[in-house]
Amino acid sequence: MISKKLAATAVLALSALLAAGCGSTKDAARPAAGGAGAEAGRAGVVLPLLTSPFWQAYNNYVPRMAKELGVETLPTVNSNSDPAQQVTDINNLVTQGVKGIVVSPLDSAAIVAGLRQAENKGIPVVAVDVAPESGKVFMIVRANNRAYGEKACKHIGDQVKKGKVVQIQGDLASVNGRERSEAFNQCMKANYPDIKVLEIPAEWKSDVAAAKLDGLLNANPDVKGIYLQAGGVYLAPTLQTLKSKGMLRPAGDDKHIVIVSNDGIPQEFDAIRKGEIDATVSQPADAYARYGLFYVKAAMEGKTFRPGPTDHDSEIVKLPNGLLEDQLAAPLVTKENVDDKALWGNSVK
């Protein structure tokens, strides 16, 4: 009897507790903090991964740019290539009471749950590098990946004009990889009808790129150009494979294969100086950090933006889903401008 009573009381107490604790994640929603001139608060920065030279450079630029712009940031958080972890990271930042978040989504769809959490608390989010499918972000800061593919296409096409060109693709399940591939193919088809594009899907993996390029060159020893969609992972295996086949000839040689890479890391610059590759599209790691923080600061201060040209050589466009995207310019680096101090690849050590 006693035990039954006890149990009943326990159940009652527990349900009371549950009822009291009940609620939704929206309850704490409140408008963005403070009036003008008030303490702006701290911002959180979420990184997608740290195993690429590009994101390492970005990570190094964040504190520097934050200082320049006068934004107070928490130490950066690394989601380590795990989209679920990224949502957790955003939640953690929300819990820590940040007033703005800069996130580089790993996956354009999987990030939406995280964006909702921030939106419910009235915290503005700036998305860097990848545009979310839906959800609310204050601004998307992104280099134009279609422009990467087009620049590479033009540079290779103008020199090759006729023959076979290889494109070492990224992960086709990612927006960035897909857009580069599409733009490259469309531009080739439209402008250089005599060029045949061969494809190597390599999922951003160096060993896959090496094995497939190795095989492809056996069947097509007359390849005249190669586009590497990510120099950070594909540069070393490409050079290694060409070297082992005796096909790595310096620029100017009759048999030189025109290679255009993508990223703008120091190793690519070295290869350009040596004449091993011809050009690379420099992804603006510094501008990513600067404008990610610039917009999050603006959001915390309550500013708004409209579509149109900006003061930094780029254009804000309105995407079909209503979000705003600042499309940053990405310079093509060739032998002529490879020593330019303004390129981020020349300032990292």
Partner: peptide, 13 residues
């Protein structure tokens, strides 16, 4: 062997 084949060591190797 993988290192030689690829020409670098990525942290994801």
């Amino acid at each position: 062997i993988q290192t030689g084949y690829v020409g670098a060591i990525n942290a994801n190797q």
